[in-house]
Design a protein around this nucleic acid. Structure first.
Lengths: 182, 182
DNA sequence: GGTGTCATGTAAACAGTTACATGATTTT
DNA sequence: AAAATCATGTAACTGTTTACATGACACC
């Protein structure tokens, strides 16, 4: 499971509990998994079985016990090998394109409304992602280079949405400019 | 299942067999499902159960029998309602960003190599997607507007990859310009 | 007194992929 | 002679989501 590498990465930064990891993944845009319990706790069991992480139980008064996971040397090697491995291509899954593919059955008004809704949703996303960039708590910053790498990851996400915005605005222009034409 | 709407859309264009639909989806970039048998044939059974499509068996000499699926009025209504419904946001799933997040553990050379590989893969994709745009067989074109809509879908895919290329080139510049710095 | 956070985990359902199975015809 | 295409379908597995379950504390 690819989420295992995301978790190994997080643990290479610092030791965490499953609950911590869950929150980090849920709050992250680029670590795109939902981060539900089932995924995280199952992953951690797998990583333990493969000796890529160890766990230490920490009892607390008046709070549930924690299991703190720490990456092993074997885990660090596995992580580095994966980082060095062939990158995979981004997956663009956009149900809106499927909707658009058959939207010639709509009237101009209906189609314009649909496009406007999508444009609005994208604009909202851009604002949200820009806020996230400023507010996010989990942002490794051990070296100047690491800080820049993480900054560029935020750039990627924001520019993806901005590119989508430019595209949908082009779509609107192209369809309005030819309305009723031919 | 969202693929059901993609199939309804295809059948709103023309009646097809499961095998035809499978090939259309496999060849399409924006209909992003793998289009394996299990998905298609299961979907078609569901659509039949809900009376959104009907099937007609066509026997052929010296070839396996076909089941030709045709959309019903109920199916057309269901499709139109879905097209008019709230669009969902695009999903950008990019494992490369996760790789990059922890790549400060690499040397400059290793990192540059990783970035170069990704840049190359993206460039290849752009060429492939531009070829697909020209060569694709399945491209509804019943009205000028429909032709334009499909053209804009191709634009979306290509511009997504082009945006990714611009981004990775920026990443290279940003990291090289500060190499060894601070 | 209800909701939210901390912290672990499991059960059931749904979605998706890979591989298997059949059998004829066509292409290399 | 082998591989690919046409055409249907199933089995087994993997991955993902939603919901359930527990229990204490903090906040409103």
């Amino acid at each position: 499971m690819s989420i295992n590498y995301a978790i190994l990465g997080i643990l290479s930064y610092k030791s965490y509990t499953g609950y911590d990891i869950k929150k980090i993944i849920q709050d992250s845009t680029f670590m795109y998994w939902s981060g539900n319990n089932n995924q995280i706790y199952k992953s951690l069991i797998e990583l333990l079985d493969e000796d890529l992480v160890t766990s230490e139980i920490q009892h607390q008064e008046s709070s549930p016990s924690k299991k703190i996971y720490t990456i092993t040397d074997k885990g660090l090697i596995k992580l580095k090998n994966w980082i060095l491995s062939e990158p995979s291509l981004p997956e663009f899954k956009n149900m809106f394109l499927v909707q658009m593919a058959w939207s010639d059955s709509l009237s101009s008004e209906e189609l314009n409304e649909l496009l406007a809704k999508y444009e609005n949703d994208i604009k909202t996303q851009i604002i949200m992602q820009k806020e996230k960039r400023v507010r996010d708590a989990f942002k490794p910053n051990r070296t100047t280079r690491e800080f820049r790498l993480w900054d560029l990851i935020y750039d990627n996400i924001i520019s993806s949405y901005e590119n989508e915005l430019i595209w949908i605005q082009k779509v609107k222009r192209m369809l309005i400019s030819t309305e009723g034409g031919e």
